[in-house]
Structure formats: C-alpha cells, structure tokens
C-alpha cells in the first residue's frame, strides 16, 4: 500500500521537482519497491500525455536529413547498453573535490546528471561519507557506485593513517542482507588522498549506506571493528 506521502513524492519526482538529495533517496526506494516503481511508471505515462496539449509543429524540412547526416558521418555511434562510466564518474568526482574538503554532493549529482545526457550514467549512485573519528573531523570520502556493473570507486581524504596492524575496510549496507557486505580494504596514501576501486563480495540490489570500519590487517569477512566513516 502506497501512502499519500509516497504518492506526492512520486508525483514530484516524475515532474523533476525534487531536489537532488530527495530524488536520490527516492530512486533508492524505487529499486527495492516494485509497487512504487510501477506507480512511477504509470504517473510518468500520465505526465507524458500532457505533451498532447501542446500544439504539434512541423520542424524544418531539412532537419531530419541533418540529423541523419550526423549519424552517418559517424559522429554519433549507437551506444552499447553498458558503457564504461568510470572515467565520467571519476572526472566528476575529481572536479568537485579537487579544490579541497568541500565535498558538495549536490554539485556532484548535478554534474553527473548533466553527463547522463551524454552517457549511460543513470545507474550511478554517489555517496559522501563523513568521519566519525573525533580526532579527524575533516575526514571525508566520496563513493561512486555502479549498480549495474556492481562495482565502484572510493576517494578518501584527511583520514588518519591506521596502525601498522590495521586496515580500513569498506562495507555496503544493503537491506536484503542481515550484515554489511564486505567491499574490501583500502590503503591510505602518505599524501592523505586515497582512491581505490572496489567490488563487493555479494550482489547488491539496493544501497542503504556505505561504511568504513577499522579492522585487523588484511580485512575480515564480517565487520567487527569500530565504524569510522558512514554515509549515503
């Protein structure tokens, strides 16, 4: 049963009226709620029907041939269903956080949104993780996650180096599993900025949060140590 609040959010989502953060949350809910996804499809169809209230217009006669010429010239190749989004996502991440600590997820989402029109980026989730370590309040991480490829990248800044016998370990919190899913350990670089790719141990259907814990060297199959970063 879908309540009025969800109906309202779905309606605003269909019209593109949610802000980036609310839209991202709603898209997460959509992935795990088939009934809600069906409602959105139906509302989207109803919304699209409003196009019929605009008076149809005939475009310039040569426009079709101009488009076809561009296609034939090979400027626009048919895209395969799955493309390598990592360069796009990484470029967007770097562009946003290159200047320092001011990780602005809204801006990152907007940049990715703009890139979606040029690439197949709709499956990408961006998460920002805040430090929970009292001595490292400026610690921050950005995760770009491709649900279709089941892989992602993480970039970490301003976290303290762990002791020699410990590692930071990334976890994906997916509601379908009772425990966080292991996404591997990563090693901080001396210059304080670390970038690593990861692939969780188990299939992820919906990401609730990403977390980083401090574990013994080499990592553990199930989370045991303290959570030091958390976010979605």
């Amino acid at each position: 049963m879908i309540d009025e609040r969800s109906e309202e959010t779905a309606s605003l989502y269909v019209f593109g009226l949610l802000d980036d953060e609310d839209a991202r949350r709603f898209e997460e809910a959509l992935r795990s709620d088939a009934e809600l996804a069906r409602l959105v499809s139906e509302l989207e169809a109803a919304a699209a029907s409003l196009a019929h209230t605009a008076a149809p217009k005939i475009p310039a006669p040569d426009l079709k041939n101009r488009i076809l010429d561009q296609i034939r010239a090979g400027k626009v190749a048919v895209m395969p269903r799955r493309v390598n989004w990592l360069p796009w996502a990484l470029a967007a991440c770097l562009a946003v956080i290159a200047g320092g600590l001011a990780v602005d997820r809204s801006r990152l989402q907007r940049e990715l949104s703009a890139a979606r029109d040029q690439d197949e980026l709709s499956q990408i989730k961006i998460a920002t993780l805040a430090s929970l370590v009292q001595d490292a309040p400026k610690g921050v991480a950005v995760v770009a996650w491709d649900s279709a490829r089941q892989e992602g990248i993480i970039k970490v800044q301003n976290m303290p180096m762990p002791k020699a016998d410990h590692d930071y370990q990334l976890w994906v919190i997916d509601p379908q599993y009772p425990l966080p899913v292991n996404a591997g350990v990563f090693h901080l670089r001396e210059d304080g900025i670390t970038k690593a790719s990861f692939k969780p141990d188990q299939p992820i259907s919906s990401v609730d949060k990403f977390a980083v814990s401090l574990e013994r060297k080499g990592g553990v199959p199930q989370h045991k140590g303290p959570i030091v970063m958390l976010g979605n």
């Binding site: 019929h52 605009a54 008076a55 149809p56 005939i58 475009p59 488009i67 076809l68 048919v78």
Partner: peptide, 26 residues
Amino acid sequence: IKAGDERAFAQFYDRLSPLLFGLVFK
C-alpha cells in the same frame, strides 16, 4: 533503431517529431 536501422529512425522521427517539436516549443 537499437540495431542501427536508419530507416526505422527516420520513421520514428516522422511519427513523433511534430508532437515533440510542439512540446519543446511550448
């Protein structure tokens, strides 16, 4: 069109372009 058929693309354009042009113009 997925298979790269330009004729199909031209037909798709013919069918929808007046409506879509009207939409974006509005």
